[in-house]
Amino acid sequence: MKKWFSIFKSELALIFDDKSILLTCLVAPILYAFFIGSIYAEKNVTEIPIAVVDFDHSNLSRKVSQLVNTSEKISVEGHYSSIEDAMFHFNNLEVQGILVLPKNFQRKTINLDGSQVELILNNTKFLTSNEINKAVQSVILTVAGGVRMQYFVSNNIPVELAKQKAQPILPVFKSIYNATNNYGDYLLPILLILIIQQTLIIGFGQSIVHEFKHGLFNHSEKLNFFEFTKILSAKSSYYILLYIIYFFVFYKLIFPFFSLSFNGSIFLHLLLSLLFISVLIIYTTLFASFFKTAIGWTEIMAFSTYPLFLVSGYSWPIDSMPQGLKVFANLLPSTPYFNIFNALATEGAKLDNITNGFAHLLVLLLVGYLLLYVRFQFIKEKMIVKTVEN
């Protein structure tokens, strides 16, 4: 036990001596949480300025422009007769989009011939471009449905039947993990969790690389796996405690600060977080053992953040991925964790609703521990051979 506390104290000394680990684990989580969060602070964007280029100058084209202007999210800042005039304001970022209504728009629409409406968007701001796209599509579909209905009524079809024929399929939206139907509310919680995940992986990984190069792990040929695990538990206990505190602070302070939905039992959330941290610790130790320098580890892990997020199934369904990516996604701790977190935070799920996710994380923990054992035996044999040769 005395040796365990000695290793624990040595880890604290390493953290405060190594500015990279110190900044990554103590400064970055809170700093990045407020930095990333501030980007989405105005999650519900309104009054997005757009321009309308009307080549038709008809009653229907003017009606479309009026309907777009009355949309909750959109504000028509100007009507133009040429693309060049609208593009001038677009390039100066005075408007975020341009709606182009073509010549003969009314005639082709009323005759049900179809008319191509163009929409030019500034995609550097995906929140605003997404809202413009949704609002314009909604207006165009409404106008098209109204035109079809008038056509059917003019052919002596009863009004109710004309409504059904004009729009035979009515969309029904049921938000599950995005109750506010807002992209910021959907994305920000997981980005905050991703900050915790990546700072832990990078910071603890740097410590492990240092340990294999200069510390107790450097003499692995003298250790058995039990002693190796003991050293690992002493080194990781500080990170486990620190990051459990981070999760609690994020749940209780940062989530409410950004008005993010957070339901479910705090005990289940922290239990899930503890299991998630443990899995990350095991896999970080495993993969960091292959690196020779802390800089190399940091570079790879920093650039892997976005790809790992995309593969986790949060932004793109795992079922739609190629078979190889499906297997890889299910090997990532973030895949079951994000699913359980959403079920708890958004739907207020109970323990019996998330047992599969917990089981998934437990399996990853056991598999990681077995792989770490195999890796340790390989490193030990390699060092024994090296010692004998010397």
Rank of each mutant, 00 (worst) to 15 (best):
V279P: 07
F262C: 05
I245T: 15
Q116K: 12
S233W: 14
D17E: 14
K163H: 09
V363K: 04
L260Q: 01
N69F: 01
Q323I: 14
G215E: 08
L274V: 10
A349C: 08
I120V: 15
D352S: 12
N104V: 03
F290C: 10
S38N: 14
N178Y: 07
S265G: 11
A162W: 07
P322Y: 13
A359N: 11
K165P: 09
A166V: 09
L362S: 11
S61Q: 05
D18E: 15
M321K: 01
K165Q: 04
F287H: 07
T387Y: 08
P189K: 01
F267M: 06
G145R: 04
D352Y: 07
F204M: 15
L23D: 07
L270G: 02
T346S: 07
A41M: 10
Y246M: 05
Y80R: 10
V209W: 01
I83E: 08
L121S: 05
I240Q: 08
V136T: 03
V363E: 04
L242S: 10
W297H: 03
S233P: 06
N92C: 04
K213V: 08
H360F: 14
F8A: 14
T387N: 10
L351P: 10
Y306W: 11
G368R: 01
L223R: 03
Y183F: 13
W4V: 15
L351S: 08
K213F: 09
S38Y: 15
Y80L: 12
I295G: 08
G78W: 00
P307D: 04
F376C: 06
S175M: 14
I110K: 06
L371G: 07
G313Y: 01
I300Q: 08
Y337I: 06
V172L: 10
S138C: 06
A359S: 15
S71D: 09
I110R: 03
